[in-house]
Design a protein around this nucleic acid. Structure first.
Lengths: 218, 218
DNA sequence: CGAAAAATTGATGGGCGTCAAGTCAAGTGG
DNA sequence: CCACTTGACTTGACGCCCATCAATTTTTCG
């Protein structure tokens, strides 16, 4: 838990978007422009009042909690096309930050609250399913199984391709899988040496032996 | 992962309910009587089509998943008054079984699907919050912190009393906390010897030093 | 009471965290 | 272009927490 980047989400970051603020505000009452956020931008914090939902236009977001001593658990990554930010009450119970340069669009919920309520039930249920499935990973799987499951999940969310892009750092992966950065790195190396994956670059993985990886994920 | 009890949920278990079946069926089209289920009764299984929701009238239910080798992770306990069984699609993705003698009421969803949809969004969101909070426990807390958090959660769900009833076995607790039954037992003993809790019986706990337990849960 | 199940307690070992050093890639300034 | 810095990642050594295996005790229930 070293240093985190700490810029702050702002709806119209100066210089990031075309300069047409007044016009945008009028025209896009229902479709505001996305904000361009560098890596580590805080979208919202635990304890804040939530008055909007958010959609990832491109890039990715980590949803996480902290313990008082700094231990961090990422409960989910939200990738391009996904909506996040719904809560059980009017308060955010988690932190949300970009994991890389991202486009984040605010969705207003005040005026169209009921519409959103209906639309977002399926999303909430899928989030619930994902969280519950992740409980099995964190509660019962060892480090190799966790990393294998993670790679397969990322591949599946990118269309099931052998070439997987990892928009997040090793530390993010570790905090998602309930491991340390060192253990994640060791497992990556082990999978590479066994010929299960290749690592063309730090943040891209090629799955060479798909079935083997499947078996590893249990 | 030894032997589990395996009776099967049936809507009108003979001998468990007052004999007025025909009348009940007519009168309770919208309010069917609860089925009385002994411990270990399967309510539904992973992969089954889901055509109903369920409410716990008394007792409790475990929601869980299995790995192919038998490792089990309980994602939630549902206690008296709580509703469970909603899924992201028409299939159950988990198992549900009673953890003790319980009364389970089926809620029909076919005819009143939209009503339920609206009513159950808050429930789904609270389930989501609970699952995400549990991810922090499983991903980042040690055995003492897990047990402490569990005892406080059970107390809170029973009105915040010092006297807590545990309707589930040690194995269930272990599979909820991602530990072994032996570790759970050892932590219970340690808390007892430190004077943090008392164990009047196997399935009841008295929290003696509340603040200490709070601190332990981090 | 007697048998079976559940829970506790002990001994031991391994997996993963911790600490530390080394490697690599990207960026900066002379 | 190259020395230097910086941050991210990798690799190694070591130790601890918790799983595993095993024996015993306690509880439950016929």
């Amino acid at each position: 838990m070293d240093s985190f980047e700490t810029s702050r989400f702002s709806f119209h970051p100066s210089g990031d978007l075309p300069r047409a603020d007044a016009q945008d505000r009028r025209l896009n009452q229902n479709l505001p422009p996305p904000a361009l956020c560098p890596a580590g931008t805080e979208i919202y914090a635990q304890g804040e009042v939530c008055n909007s939902l958010y959609r990832v236009e491109f890039g990715g977001v980590r949803i996480y909690r902290l313990l008082s001593d700094g231990r961090r658990q990422i409960s989910a990554f939200q990738l391009a096309g996904e909506t996040f930010g719904f809560e059980a009450d009017s308060t955010h119970h988690f932190f949300a930050e970009t994991i890389c340069a991202s486009g984040i669009r605010m969705l207003q919920s005040k005026s169209a609250h009921d519409d959103l309520t209906i639309d977002f039930l399926p999303m909430a249920l899928r989030s619930l399913l994902h969280a519950q499935e992740h409980l099995l990973v964190l509660g019962r799987q060892n480090s190799i199984e966790r990393v294998a499951a993670f790679l397969l999940e990322m591949s599946e969310r990118q269309g099931g391709l052998r070439q997987v892009e990892l928009p997040m750092s090793r530390l993010d992966i570790a905090d998602y899988l309930g491991l340390t950065i060192e253990t994640v790195s060791r497992v990556f190396s082990k999978l590479k040496h066994r010929g299960v994956i290749r690592l063309p670059s730090l943040r891209s993985v090629e799955i060479v032996r798909w079935q083997t990886l499947q078996n590893m994920a249990s």
